Simulated scan of single mutants.
Amino acid sequence: MSVEPPKEDETVRVRREGRDGRVGRLTLNRPRALNALTHAMVSRVDAALTAWERDPSLRTVVIDGAGDRGLCAGGDIRAIYEDARTGGATSPAFWRDEYRLNARIARYPKPYVALMDGIVMGGGVGVSAHGDVRIVTERSRVAMPETGIGLVPDVGGTYLLARSPGELGTHLALTGAVVGAGDALLCGLADHCVPSGQLPALVAELASTDVPVAVRRHATAPPDGELAADREWIDACYAADSVEEIVDRLFASGHQKAKQTAETILTRSPTALKATLAAVRRARRAGTLEEVLTAEYRASCAALRTPDLVEGIRAQVIDKDRTPRWSPAELGQVTAADVDHFSAVPPGGDLRWDPEP
């Protein structure tokens, strides 16, 4: 029997649990779409957080995803694709509210516990990795894959990656590489690893136990990661000043994994790669998350007006031929003006922060 997709007001399940309703539960509920975020979902999460912030009886917020595949695979890319094809009228409003939600999560005054089980990518990182209690599992697959569709990492992703050890964040930003629990912890994208089978027990304990105590009771050592062993060549190669030089260093390093990484980078949008490197370096100098989100908003709006966004989504999500035809096609053809375009104030104005998140 076919299963009907959830109605719009059911795409985020909002409820109270535990003694006196002390735990607020948010479950992203589009499992057939890997819980991809729509504008309505962002608004529903934000409304719940607003109400709970003012409620003294609520002690803790927990966010997770419906189904067994992941928390959230990102924003609704198909909707962005259709919007970009027809002039890009609606995506800026979605991003404005999404990025303000990311900032609200980072500043939330109550424990915000994110269960980053399974796939957590793009917008999924935005609703989880800015929380103060970020839990991965042996099934976690975390990534910021935007350069593969002609975008710059957003939702505060460049802020997080710019603060990863050494050049690990630059590596993840340019390649869009997927990492497991161990590497997510190493890169500062998560705080604790809890076996997926213990998550229900952990959530149940939060109804009667302080968050740090409950997490310590269930946390365990994560599966081994891969990035720590690669730090030498990653830090040396990605310290270069341009994407071209990074690629050259990777090819010349003598490491097979570095060579494969260079080949991966060369499949990404050349324009997005150069704009992403500039964004990560700029985020390192930024003082606040809001400052970085403003820069990311500019970059996302700029991407709407470039051919690579539509082409990247077409190749990866719509036709799934995995052979995007980037324009320009080569790194050397991307000009400084092309990159500057991604830091210009959008036609509709900058992301605003009043009232404060």
Rank of each mutant, 00 (worst) to 15 (best):
253 S>R: 09
71 L>M: 12
252 A>I: 00
26 L>D: 10
347 P>L: 09
67 G>Y: 09
264 T>K: 12
232 E>V: 10
265 I>V: 15
170 T>G: 02
167 E>V: 02
202 L>S: 04
331 L>N: 11
194 V>D: 04
93 A>E: 15
189 L>A: 06
93 A>Y: 05
305 R>V: 07
144 M>K: 01
204 A>W: 01
324 P>H: 09
118 G>N: 06
42 V>C: 11
264 T>H: 04
336 A>P: 02
326 W>F: 08
237 C>R: 00
352 R>E: 15
15 R>W: 09
226 E>R: 14
4 E>G: 01
229 A>M: 04
145 P>D: 05
88 G>P: 07
277 L>Q: 12
194 V>F: 04
174 L>C: 04
126 G>R: 05
202 L>D: 00
40 A>Q: 10
47 A>I: 06
111 P>L: 05
163 R>G: 03
72 C>P: 01
344 A>T: 14
347 P>I: 03
322 R>T: 06
87 G>V: 06
195 P>W: 04
104 R>F: 02
93 A>V: 12
278 A>T: 15
79 A>F: 01
321 D>V: 11
322 R>D: 13
79 A>C: 00
328 P>Y: 09
166 G>L: 11
47 A>N: 03
275 A>W: 07
113 V>Q: 04
346 P>W: 12
200 P>H: 08
105 I>K: 08
234 I>R: 06
319 D>R: 14
274 K>R: 15
244 E>N: 02
143 A>I: 01
271 T>H: 11
79 A>V: 00
129 A>D: 03
94 F>G: 00
306 T>E: 15
321 D>T: 13
191 D>R: 02
25 R>N: 09
221 A>Q: 13
341 H>Q: 13
353 W>D: 08
129 A>H: 00
317 V>S: 10
145 P>V: 03
192 H>K: 03
113 V>R: 02
114 A>G: 10
36 A>F: 03
279 A>K: 10
147 T>F: 02
81 Y>R: 05
35 N>T: 02
280 V>A: 12
342 F>A: 10
271 T>A: 13
272 A>Y: 03
197 G>N: 04
39 H>K: 08
189 L>M: 15
206 L>F: 00
181 A>R: 00
284 R>K: 15
38 T>I: 01
53 E>M: 14
317 V>N: 08
308 D>Q: 12
39 H>Q: 11
213 V>F: 00
239 A>W: 03
103 A>I: 01
263 E>L: 14
157 G>E: 06
263 E>N: 07
283 A>Q: 06
240 A>D: 11
50 T>W: 01
294 T>I: 05
352 R>V: 14
94 F>N: 01
83 D>E: 02
77 I>G: 00
356 E>N: 00
71 L>V: 04
336 A>C: 00
275 A>G: 13
20 D>V: 09
252 A>Q: 15
108 Y>D: 05
18 G>S: 10
52 W>G: 09
68 D>K: 12
9 D>H: 14
356 E>R: 11
